[in-house]
């Protein structure tokens, strides 16, 4: 009967099987080192801010992030934001034009963004997004890292930053010989099926980082993936830190209870 316990543990392991068994034409993205990985992992605030800069200057031209607000970036945001002050957040929001209304005349109007506004979407609706992008609407990036999660990283609740990094750095100018590339598609090593509608968004020096970091493609991809991981679960740091305390507490409690159990049952034998 002991074996049933082994089975119980195995069942937990087996539950991961559906994730491991994904599409066959999939290439595993090479593993990167992430500061937020592991039990005590935390986000690198500099990387987060650079990642936001890339989203703001590059990705946001096509991709929405409807679940995020400008306030999220500030000190009162979930997980303590990405290190911007309230004033910086207000300045970032004020650069955007937000549709608001109706006003006293019953008309919609545009005004500068406020911290509590959601990230402004590049297209008013999915139909417009599809029409402007050759029939393929660019997906919302709010939780994309969790939605594209796979393998062990996904298990650890960090989603798929490797995959995002892999896509951003995985473009090839020319497909391998013999590969039939559809008109208007791009070849990507990591994307399932290798044909992606998104043109290569990043290259060396696509952005000029405000903090002076050298903007290589891999640096940009790394920072963008870090920011998107934060965006997908901004409370990750809090979760891991709370978890360490909770588990230590439970272990101590269980230890004492084990001692108590032995003491109580000692009389019986």
């Amino acid at each position: 009967m002991r074996a049933l316990a082994v089975i119980a543990i195995a069942s937990v392991a087996l539950a991961g099987a559906p994730i491991a068994a994904s599409a066959q034409d999939e290439v595993e993205a090479p593993h990167q080192n992430w500061s937020f990985a592991g039990i005590f992992g935390t986000f690198d605030r500099g990387s987060l801010q650079r990642g936001f800069q890339i989203y703001n200057e590059v990705c946001s031209n096509c991709h929405s992030m409807k679940l995020l607000h400008y306030r999220d970036l500030g000190p009162n945001g979930p997980g303590g934001g990405i290190g911007f002050s309230d004033a910086e957040v207000a300045a970032i929001a004020a650069q955007k034009q937000v549709e608001d209304g109706p006003n006293d005349q019953g008309e919609m109007f545009r005004r500068p963004g406020k911290p509590q506004d959601t990230f402004v979407s590049p297209f008013p609706n999915v139909e417009a997004a599809r029409a402007a992008n050759g029939g393929a609407a660019p997906p919302d990036l709010s939780v994309i890292v969790k939605a594209r999660g796979r393998g062990l990283e996904y298990l650890w609740g960090e989603g798929g930053p490797d995959y995002v990094y892999g896509i951003l750095t995985g473009f090839e100018d020319k497909p391998p010989t013999g590969f039939q590339l559809t008109q208007g598609k791009y070849y990507n090593n990591i994307f399932p099926g290798h044909q992606i509608s998104m043109p290569p968004p990043l290259a060396d020096n696509t952005v000029k980082f405000q903090d002076g970091t050298k903007a290589t493609l891999s640096q940009e991809a790394h920072d963008a993936a870090t920011f998107l991981t934060w965006a997908a679960e901004p409370n990750m740091e809090d979760r891991k830190q709370t978890g360490a305390k909770a588990i230590l507490f439970l272990l101590a409690m269980t230890g004492v209870l084990y001692g108590a159990k032995r003491r109580v049952w000692k009389d019986l034998h």
Binding site: A15, G16, P18, I19, I39, P139, D140, V143, K146, A147, R148, G149, R150, Y154, L155, W156, G157, G159, G160, A232, R239, K240, T242, G243, A244, A246, I247, L250, L251, M253, T254, L257, Y258, A260, K261
Partner: peptide, 30 residues
């Protein structure tokens, strides 16, 4: 109580460190 303690340790490991391991990533797409 002792059994519950052991159980909660395993449960907590999932809640805090493997929270999405038993779910499907597709469910993070609307």
């Amino acid at each position: 109580m002792f059994g519950l303690g052991v159980f909660l340790v395993i449960y907590a490991i999932f809640i805090f460190y493997l929270p999405n391991a038993l779910g499907d990533p597709q469910n993070y797409i609307e």
